[in-house]
Design a protein around this nucleic acid. Structure first.
Length: 111
DNA sequence: GGATTGACGGGAG
DNA sequence: ACTCCCGCCAATC
């Protein structure tokens, strides 16, 4: 029995709800979102869910970056540039190599 | 229906 | 800091 659609949906929804918890001006990593969503070690699924977001989604997908604090490369300069602009607009700083200091801008699920 | 493919991550070397 | 490698697993080939 493959995973029923209802189950996949709730999994997606938990991931999206978690992304929605990341406040403006902060970023979370794929692994962190997966962990907080109760899906440890399933970071790739987070990426998949974000990839499948409909174009007009209001979800703050731009606040999700990889574990090294970089915008995930996905062969789409358009989206990557948009993500970077949105983050900058929220006050997130990038170093000369396009890296975000997670100590400073990383999301703390507690605070 | 096996193999490949990723918006990833962590450990080893 | 970088390259491999493996875990993870739905979608795609």
């Amino acid at each position: 029995m493959p995973a029923p659609r209802a189950e996949r949906d709730s999994t997606r929804q938990r991931i999206q709800a978690t992304v929605d918890c990341v406040p403006a001006g902060r970023v979370a990593t794929y692994g962190q979102i997966a962990h907080e969503a109760g899906l440890p070690r399933r970071s790739r699924l987070v990426g998949r869910v974000l990839r499948e977001l409909p174009r007009g989604s209001t979800l703050a997908w731009h606040r999700v970056v990889d574990a090294s604090g970089r915008i995930a490369a996905r062969g789409n300069p358009e989206a990557e540039g948009l993500q970077r602009r949105r983050l900058k607009r929220e006050g997130v700083r990038f170093d000369e190599r396009g890296r975000i200091d997670l100590q400073r801008f990383g999301w703390d699920p507690e605070a």
